[in-house]
Design a protein around this nucleic acid. Structure first.
Length: 930
RNA sequence: GGGCCCAUAGCUCAGUGGUAGAGUGCCUCCUUUGCAAGGAGGAUGCCCUGGGUUCAAAUCCCAGUGGGUCCA
């Protein structure tokens, strides 16, 4: 850290008369105007000083505080930026949720590939930190959802010129600290009370000096000066033990906690009371929580103490509670009875805000990714509500927050919450029954429910161990919950990790110029001329191991595989030869044409792409945009594309939605999509600046992934606008027609729509029509009558099955009582009937049973399908049917068995059946004697 | 993206290779009758679909479909 010491010697500190001191408690270095100060000011070195004694002259609500911050920086030449979604995985694939304002600009802006939307800028970014979930409500200061107010400046060293998307210095450390000071000043804070602690920052491969800003015991801001990157040969060793070196870009990354600032301005005992006063009042009232004046005072004092204590760890919670109780001179249980309901209520308010952010930004609960996080939060919130006795519907509670956050899709949010609560209820109900059965079972055995059953219940059925304990208690059953339960569950999930294939990078490839993409200039073009720049030999890459070639041209009409659109095919022709193009890929802007034969470097070639294939792909691509657009219109604004694949005969898109799409809904989507086709509007492409595009259309542009670069290609189809690199038809009418073939649920919360466009749609319709016509033909009715007729046939078929069953029974009885056909022999005191009857197993069984009912041993053999035997023995006769069958079956090369009074068996050698039956009397004798 | 679990009577579920079951609901009758209840009898079923193994599959194996759940 000492290596960074110089980094903190700011001119600003000097001019303002700051002194650098070492905290007498924790040893951290800090800067202050107060020369007499000894500690850094941050808990646990010091306590909160703002509770019941607000830090600013005026109280602020959340909204007022946000506005105060943003307008302060606006007045100081920062541009105000609209917040990004909380679902960060919409623009980056390394994280799920937005956890800080800087996430908005990673990785493209921070690495200098893409310019920032404004420079410098200010923003208040909603964030969600799931890792704090257990502390929410309990510590008085943790929230899962919060807004990070920030100002950012993106700088690049002068000497690197215009290599990056921004250049030069906007401002750096001195100005950043000065802004912080002046903002405090504008709020009416006492500047003597502020300390700036030196606290270098490391994260995500970057690092830099950073400063924590403490005021009245609360950390109100962090000023990060991101300027280093991981580098084994770097000059600086940071606190993570790795070495870092300076980057060409350096970025001001600040974070001011909106909730903290609001809290400090109000001086309430907990942050929740400052942030959600109305909601907490509502919840208290709804849960029927009333406190006497004395209790009220106790709670107030307890909250104050809790706020002072450092209880980040769950284990410390118990101890902290003990200390608080002692200090207040009440019993721990009394304190818990008072505080626990309040803690639940604080958590509910916070979780509802989290849910409002998540669902409002279009996350659909599911078993994957952010959807799963949303489901976890929702279920946890529901449990908290049940626990504390809040009976207001959850969708209403979430809506209260959604309304405050000014989301427009509130109806959808409520719908999603209702659906999800209902799903949870069903899961609990089913799980409850399952646990009851288990509890009963183990209660009878007098054993506790073992751990592996618990793991199974949790892992496969989503039932928490505490719920098992609760239900088991009703049956007096113990439950064996190990302390490391969740790690036992985790160990079940250990498995082989897929390893990534590494491809050899060709240096020659890197030196080639980017191929000119003619397919954008003329999407209908199929013929072109080009010069061969290079040819790569690919040995053994062909389907049958033959050598293939990757041809690089200066320009091409061939569309390389991308954005779910397969590559074009066609031919490249010179005066001497013609080669087939079977695949086209793009690598770093260089387009590779996979061919079956060699071309010479410098050759001039005529390219020709498979026109019909391309047309079909274009129709399907435009149709994809139409179907997504139609799905949004029918299902709701939350609908997002979750993957797509275009094809020749059909295409599919996966769409996020919280319910199954039934046939009626499917037809509605199909209708809307086809209406757009019939409108026959033009399909337009443009290449606007990415930030202008984002500003105008929002993040919903990026349905199929986020492209890099300053300018992005937009495709306008009707009202729909998407960032897209694919080829499209000129007018929607050129799609012809769209037929949705199928909908399936590919994951929870993700529906797959398979559809065909143009001639492929007609073909698909014809296929189903043919199937129907053939079915109608077989039934000999008109196609419209197929369902009714099929129903009638099915019913009749069932009826007849029952009749046949009946008749066989009667036949068997008649045979048994009529006797005659079978050979009767005496076995001990009883009579055995040995009979050959070439019929199926059911019939043999019925006959044998009927004989046994008359008190006779039945040995029936059939040669209908191989050789089969049934042996039935009446009650009280000492012959083991299983053994008899076993013996007989062996003679026909098979086996058999069953209970002593009824057995069946057989074997493949039907011609030995009579022989076996002839020996049956002997077998019976033997078995009886044995 | 990966793992695990489930699919049998209208409903809730048993059945672990050998004659498909229980509880509940349904129908009929009896007792009683204000309602509820009780007794006797009866009907329930492509054991999700398709393949495989086997003399024999609801049962074992594979694939599919539908649902549930946990993890990243």
């Amino acid at each position: 850290m000492s290596e960074l010491e110089e980094e903190y010697r700011l001119d600003y500190f000097e001019e303002e008369g700051f002194v650098r001191k070492e905290c007498t408690d924790c040893g951290d270095f800090f800067w202050t105007r107060d020369t007499g100060r000894e500690t850094c000011g941050e808990p646990p070195c010091e306590n909160y000083q703002f509770i019941d004694d607000p830090g600013f002259p005026d109280e602020y609500t959340l909204e007022e505080m946000r506005e105060a911050f943003l307008s302060f920086f606006e007045e100081n030449d920062h541009e105000r930026i609209e917040p990004y979604p909380v679902a960060a995985n919409r623009w980056r694939d390394d994280v799920l949720l937005t956890q800080a304002s800087i996430y908005d600009f990673q990785p493209l802006v921070t690495s200098g590939q893409t310019p920032p939307p404004a420079n410098p800028l200010t923003i208040s970014q909603p964030c969600i930190r799931m890792q704090d979930i257990d502390n929410v409500g309990k510590t008085g200061r943790h929230t899962m959802a919060f807004e990070m107010m920030a100002h950012h400046a993106f700088n690049a060293r002068e000497e690197v010129g215009d290599e990056y998307a921004y250049s030069g210095e906007v401002y750096w450390k001195d100005e950043t600290v000065e802004y912080c000071d002046r903002f405090f000043e504008s709020m009416g804070a006492d500047l003597e009370d502020i300390t700036y602690i030196e606290d270098p920052w490391v994260g995500g491969g970057n690092a830099g000096p950073a400063i924590e800003v403490i005021y009245k015991g609360a950390e109100l801001a962090t000023l990060v000066f991101m300027s280093m990157e991981a580098d084994p040969d770097g000059d600086y060793e940071m606190k993570d033990g790795n070495r870092y070196s300076k980057m060409d870009t350096y970025i001001v990354d600040t974070g001011y906690g909106l909730e903290r600032w609001t809290w400090v301005s109000q001086g309430t005992p907990t942050v929740y009371e400052a942030v959600y006063p109305e909601m907490i009042a509502f919840l208290k009232d709804n849960a029927g929580i009333e406190h006497s004046e004395e209790e009220e005072k106790l709670v107030h004092r307890a909250s104050k103490l809790a706020g002072h204590m450092d209880i980040d760890e769950a284990e410390d919670m118990e101890a902290a509670r003990d200390n608080i109780a002692r200090e207040l001179d009440v019993s721990k249980s009394r304190l818990e009875d008072l505080l626990e309901p309040l803690e639940d209520i604080y958590a509910i308010a916070d979780h509802c805000r989290t849910l409002a952010y998540m669902l409002g930004d279009g996350i659909v609960p599911s078993n994957v990714a952010t959807g799963y996080l949303a489901r976890m939060v929702l279920r946890r919130t529901k449990r908290l509500c049940d626990n504390v006795g809040v009976d207001a519907p959850l969708d209403e509670l979430v809506d209260m927050q959604a309304e405050r956050l000014e989301y427009e899709n509130r109806d959808t949010i409520r719908d999603i919450v209702r659906t999800e609560v209902e799903k949870y209820r069903e899961t609990l109900e089913q799980g409850g029954r399952r646990v009851e059965r288990l509890a009963k079972e183990y209660a009878e055995k007098g054993q506790p429910i073992p751990t592996d059953e618990l793991v199974e219940l949790y892992d496969s059925h989503g039932i928490q161990p505490d719920m098992v304990e609760e239900i088991a208690a009703d049956f007096g059953t113990e439950v064996d919950v190990p302390d490391d339960f969740y790690s036992v569950v985790a160990s079940r999930h250990d498995g082989g990790q897929a390893f990534e294939e590494e491809e050899d990078e060709d240096d020659r490839l890197a030196d080639l110029p980017k191929t000119e993409r003619q397919y954008y200039e003329d999407q209908y073009g199929t013929d072109f001329e080009a010069v061969v720049l290079d040819v790569f030999e690919r040995e053994g890459e062909g389907d049958d191991g033959e050598t293939m070639y990757d041809v690089v041209l200066d320009q091409t009409m061939f569309y390389p595989e991308g954005g779910g659109q397969p590559a074009d095919r066609g031919t490249l022709t010179t005066d001497d030869t013609s080669v087939k193009v079977s695949d086209v890929q793009i690598e770093d802007g260089v387009i590779l044409h996979r061919t079956d034969d060699e071309l010479g470097k410098g050759d001039i070639v005529r390219g020709k792409i498979d026109r019909e294939r391309r047309r079909r792909l274009m129709r399907h691509h435009t149709a994809t945009h139409l179907v997504v657009h139609a799905a949004r219109e029918v299902l709701g604004e939350h609908v997002r594309q979750a993957g797509a694949q275009k094809g020749i005969d059909s295409s599919r898109i996966d769409v996020r939605h919280y319910e199954r799409i039934d046939r009626e809904t499917k037809e509605k989507i199909e209708m809307v999509a086809n209406e757009l086709v019939m409108e026959n509007t033009t399909v337009q492409q443009e290449w606007p600046n990415r930030h202008e595009a984002e500003e105008e259309y929002g993040f919903d542009l990026y349905q199929g992934g986020i492209p890099a670069g300053q300018n992005i290609r937009l495709i306008h189809v009707s009202e729909d606008v998407q960032a897209c690199g694919g080829t499209h038809v000129r007018r929607t009418g050129d799609v012809g027609t769209i037929k949705i073939l199928n909908t399936e649920r590919v994951q929870d919360g993700v529906e797959r729509l398979t559809f065909a466009a143009g001639d492929a749609a007609i073909e698909a319709t014809q296929r189903t029509e043919t199937a129907l016509a053939e079915a109608a033909d077989i039934l000999d009715v008109a196609p419209e009558e197929v369902p009714e007729t099929a129903q009638r046939f099915f019913d009749e078929w069932k009826d007849r099955g029952k009749q046949i069953e009946d008749l066989k029974e009667q036949l068997a009885e008649a045979r048994a009582s009529g006797g005659g056909s079978g050979e009767e022999v005496e076995v001990g005191d009883s009579t055995a009937v040995i009979q050959r009857l070439d019929a199926d197993m059911d019939e043999l069984r019925a006959t044998a049973n009927a004989l046994a009912d008359e008190g006779k041993i039945a040995v029936i053999g059939s040669g209908a399908d191989g050789a089969t035997f049934v042996v039935a023995v009446p009650d009280g006769v000492g012959v083991n049917a299983g053994e008899v069958v076993g013996e007989l079956a062996r003679k026909v090369g098979g086996g058999g068995g069953g209970p002593p009074d009824f057995a069946q068996g057989g074997g493949p050698d039907a011609e030995k059946l009579d022989e076996a039956l002839a020996e049956a009397p002997e077998v019976l004798q033997q078995v009886q004697n044995a």
